[in-house]
C-alpha cells in the first residue's frame, strides 16, 4: 500500500510517556492526524517519533502513511493523512477506528481557514464521528511565523465553540521545534484515558 510506513521503537519517547499515563497494557490506541496539506502533520509526527527514527526532511505525504510505535507494551498507530484536496476523501474511512483525532491547522494560511472549517464540518457531520464522542485536538501550528493567527483567533475562525458533542482543545504549536506540542499531547492522553 502506498505510503505505508512502519517503524518500531523500544526507546522511550513522548508517546511512550503517553502510554504510561494511559496505564493501559497490551492495548492499541489509534490516533488520526488530519488537516489541510502543508499544515505540518508529518512534521509533527516526525517530532513525536523517537530520535533515531526522525527523518531529516519531511516531504508532502501522498495518500497517507502509518506510523507504528511500540511504547512499552502498548502499540500506537498514527495515521498521517495527506491533506491535499484529492486525498481528503480518504480521511473518512479512518474515522471509525480512531480513538482520537488531531486536527492540524496552518495558522498562517488565512486564505484557507474557511476550507479547513469546511473539512472540519464534513468530519463532524460524518456518521462515524457524529454518533460517538471522539476527543479532537486542534493544533494552531506554525506559531513561530510572524503573520500567524493566535489560537483564540483560530478557534473563532473555525467556529470551534459550536462543537458540543466532542471534547476539544486547542493550542498553538511549532511542529519543527516541538513547542506547545506537549501540552496538546497531555490533554489528549487525559481524554483517551477517560474513554478507554
Amino acid at each position: 500500500m502506498a505510503g505505508l510506513e512502519r517503524s518500531r521503537s523500544t526507546r522511550p519517547g513522548l508517546l511512550n510517556r503517553l502510554a504510561t499515563f494511559l496505564g493501559i497494557k497490551k492495548k492499541e490506541a489509534q490516533i488520526l492526524f488530519v488537516g489541510l496539506d502543508n499544515s505540518g502533520k508529518s512534521t509533527l509526527i516526525n517530532f513525536l517519533k523517537p530520535d533515531s527514527y526522525k527523518r531529516q526532511e519531511v516531504v508532502p505525504t501522498i495518500g497517507y502513511s502509518v506510523e507504528q510505535f511500540t511504547a512499552g507494551r502498548i502499540s500506537f498507530t498514527v495515521f498521517d493523512m495527506s491533506g491535499q484536496g484529492k486525498s481528503r476523501p480518504l480521511w473518512e474511512h479512518y474515522y471509525r477506528d480512531a480513538h482520537a483525532v488531531v486536527f492540524v491547522l496552518d495558522s498562517t494560511d488565512r486564505l484557507r481557514m474557511e476550507v479547513a472549517r469546511e473539512e472540519l464540518n464534513n468530519l463532524l457531520l460524518h456518521a462515524d464521528v457524529s454518533t460517538r464522542k471522539v476527543p479532537i485536538l486542534f493544533l494552531a501550528n506554525k506559531m513561530d511565523c510572524k503573520d500567524a493567527l493566535g489560537p483564540i483567533q483560530v478557534s473563532v475562525d473555525m467556529c470551534l465553540h459550536e462543537i458540543n458533542l466532542h471534547s476539544w482543545h486547542i493550542c498553538a504549536t511549532n511542529a519543527v521545534t516541538g513547542e506547545g506540542v506537549e501540552e496538546g499531547i497531555l490533554w489528549l492522553t487525559e481524554q483517551i484515558k477517560h474513554r478507554l
Binding site: 474511512h93 471509525r96 477506528d97 457531520l125 457524529s130 460517538r132 464522542k133 458540543n164
Partner: peptide, 24 residues
C-alpha cells in the same frame, strides 16, 4: 483503506443519546 467493521470496537463506542443532534 476500507474500514473493517469490528464488533468489539463498535461496542466500546456505543452511541449515546446526544448523537442524534447532528443528524446525517
Amino acid at each position: 483503506a476500507t474500514p473493517v467493521v469490528s464488533t468489539d470496537l463498535q461496542d466500546s463506542f456505543t452511541a449515546t443519546s446526544e448523537q442524534v443532534e447532528n443528524s446525517p
